[in-house]
């Protein structure tokens, strides 16, 4: 091992150096592979091989009967699983593939927009010079982030309980001031079937989880925005003041200009995280009512865990892979397209 290193150092292979791109001193090292072996050996066995195995499974009718060691191999069904998933022809209740994707996209978009706007607004608020207790607020506002997501989801589910949940109790407490009878606030937040807003086909559970995820999501956005705000040199504002700029002009042309390059990559990252967010939908609404708040990840988990349709689940995951790939390519393109944005 040690003998190989100096040899590689002395005899650089220039023709590889160009291909390698990035990185250190511009010399090709064979010792590099030794550093990669452990990671790729492990990944090969427990990640890459399973992923390929999953592709094979997706073309079979793999089910519980094939789980035993001595069981016969599952039957080859060709593209049946894919067709059944894509045309929503699975024999399970409330499965509508198109609805799941659309809901998932709406969920991710609406969350990220709210998180970013709130995060920036609160960061700007806390950045006000001369504001009392700024450090105290900053420290306290980070609390939602430090709680494990599974706890957040289960606690908020209890908060939305129709009878004893804190949300309804608080609303009826406020409602008394306006002479609204307390029985009015027996809202079944996570299970109500009728849509609260007539012309938007989204169940109340969506809005409830949107509130929870906002509670959870804005603080980190505020942290990122605060970092960007503090990098803005004071001189810019002073110069703008001398030139007679209004506060709105200063906010638009200085603050926003500095925030954009910091917030955009984080917003894109947040989009992907929210798109794949498992805990809220699984633990709070449990996909309901009628599977209308099911996301791709939760549906995939249900197919495998509850329905034990391993072949179908595999096909579903392969399709999900291509959807995520498309999203990644688009977001990468977006990041690149905006990376060249200069101040």
């Amino acid at each position: 091992m040690t003998a190989a290193a100096p040899a590689a150092a002395v005899k650089p292979r220039r023709r590889w150096a160009g291909l390698a791109g990035g990185g250190g001193g511009g010399r090709v090292s064979r010792v590099a592979y030794l550093y990669l072996v452990p990671a790729f050996l492990v990944m090969g066995i427990i990640t890459l091989y399973p992923l390929l195995y999953q592709v094979w499974m997706s073309f079979t009718d793999y089910g519980v009967q094939n789980l035993r060691e001595t069981a016969p191999p599952p039957a080859w069904v060709g593209l049946d699983n894919y067709v059944n998933v894509l045309t929503s022809a699975l024999a399970i209740p409330n499965f509508d593939f198109l609805r799941i994707i659309l809901y998932n996209l709406v969920w991710a978009f609406s969350n990220v927009i709210i998180h970013v706007v709130l995060g920036v607004a609160i960061a700007v608020l806390l950045n006000t010079r001369g504001l009392w207790f700024r450090r105290f607020y900053r420290a306290m506002y980070i609390l939602p982030v430090v709680i494990p997501p599974i706890i957040v989801a289960t606690v908020w589910r209890a908060m939305y309980d129709a009878q004893d949940g804190a949300v309804n109790l608080m609303l009826s407490g406020v409602g008394v001031l306006f002479r609204i009878p307390p029985d009015f606030f027996q809202i079944d937040w996570l299970r109500q079937v009728e849509d609260p807003i007539a012309f938007i086909p989204l169940p109340l559970a969506f809005y409830a989880m949107l509130i929870t995820n906002t509670w959870l999501g804005w603080p980190l956005n505020a942290v990122v925005a605060t970092g960007a705000l503090q990098s803005i040199p004071n001189e810019l504002y002073e110069a703008a003041e001398i030139d007679g700029a209004s506060s709105w002009q200063k906010f638009r042309n200085i603050t926003m200009a500095y925030l954009r390059p910091a917030m955009l990559p984080y917003a894109i990252y947040g989009f992907v995280i929210t798109f794949n967010l498992f805990h809220l939908s699984y633990f709070m609404s449990q996909g309901g009512p009628f599977g209308r708040t099911e996301q791709l990840v939760t549906q995939a988990y249900r197919l495998v865990n509850e329905q034990q349709l391993y072949g179908v689940g595999a096909a579903f995951c392969v399709i999900m892979f291509f959807i995520l790939l498309a999203i990644t390519l688009v977001t990468n393109w977006l990041t690149k397209a905006t990376a060249t944005y200069n101040l």
Binding site: M43, L48, M57, N276, A314, T328
Partner: peptide, 20 residues
């Protein structure tokens, strides 16, 4: 390859790992 795997949610390897 690493980035591609990173992009996948944990549920993506659930089925094959369970079976294997």
């Amino acid at each position: 390859v690493i980035l591609g795997v990173l992009m996948l949610p944990a549920v993506a390897t659930l089925t094959p790992l369970f079976v294997m």
